[in-house]
């Protein structure tokens, strides 16, 4: 077992205009770990994973993937590192001009230059893994329900068998049963691939189920970070308030009285 963490984030900072979104994030994620990042809306969760992915350039700090600082890479190097990643976007972000199977096969065909027939066969297998049959493969994303879109999106994220998978609110907007189906699929896929994952969510049921470790982000900082089992005895009032979902506590929502 090597000592280099799979992902190492140091002093990651980002501001948009006067608004500080990330304020010196430090995070280590070991190979094979499943980190769940919790935090309220607008706490900087999405910006953090977009910085890790390289979609947003941070103002300061470093992101090391397998020890390599990816914030300093050029376009070509970034494309090479990007092949290690799979990402499930919050809204699915499926390409609505392409049929389902081509969405799943996209990274294989465009990113790796695989022949279409071969990529299609892999896509059908991945779709089967998320419980979708061959007839669905020919449909367009707009013809699918929200839960099916999420599953297609999951199939696309795992199609290239990435080493690192990022999930942006995978269960948001789904009914509780479908949300749990997605949780189970995430666990199954991750175990099969042995991937390292970061999930951002505010769904505590989902967090408890898929996390091996939990970090809480508040005002652009990691305020608590520990094993998933310790989440109910964190001793941190912020975490307690969030986990139990109380309106009263140290976290004050900016709501003015009517």
């Amino acid at each position: 077992m090597s000592t280099t963490p799979k992902i190492q984030v140091r002093g990651l900072s980002k501001r948009f205009g006067p608004k500080v979104v990330l304020d010196g994030i430090d995070l280590d994620i070991a190979q094979g770990e499943s980190l769940v990042v919790i935090g309220g809306s607008g706490s900087g969760k999405s910006v953090m994973i977009k910085c890790i992915l390289g979609l947003i350039r941070p103002d300061a700090g470093s992101v090391r993937i397998d020890g390599e600082d990816v914030t300093k890479l050029d376009r070509r190097g970034r494309e090479r590192v990007m092949a290690k990643f799979g990402m499930l976007f919050q809204g699915g972000a499926l390409f609505d001009s392409l049929p389902v199977w081509e969405n799943v096969a996209f990274g294989l065909i465009q990113g790796q230059g695989m022949a279409r027939a071969e990529a299609r066969a892999i896509a059908l297998r991945k779709l089967q893994a998320v419980g979708l049959g061959a007839p669905v493969a020919e449909l367009h994303p707009s013809e699918l329900s929200g839960g099916m879109q999420k599953r297609v999106s999951l199939a696309r994220a795992i199609a290239r068998e990435p080493e690192i998978i990022l999930f942006d609110e995978p269960t948001t907007g789904l009914d509780p049963i479908m949300a749990d189906v997605i949780n189970d699929l995430i666990i199954a896929c991750v175990q099969e691939l042995g991937a390292t994952t970061i999930t951002i969510t505010h769904d505590m049921h989902s967090a408890r189920k898929i996390a091996s470790r939990v970090a809480m982000i508040y005002h652009g900082k990691i305020i608590w970070n520990g094993p998933a089992a310790d989440i109910d005895r964190s001793g941190n009032p912020y975490v307690d308030q969030f986990v139990n979902g109380h309106a009263e506590g140290p976290i004050q929502m900016e709501v003015r009285p009517l």
């Binding site: 376009r75 990007m82 976007f89 990113g111």
Partner: peptide
């Protein structure tokens, strides 16, 4: 629409340069 639904970000994560594609 592709931009606001994160499809352009998705292209990047699938190793496809959106400017080129």
């Amino acid at each position: 629409t592709m931009r606001v639904t994160e499809q352009i970000d998705a292209l990047t994560t699938l190793s496809t340069n959106p400017m080129k594609y």
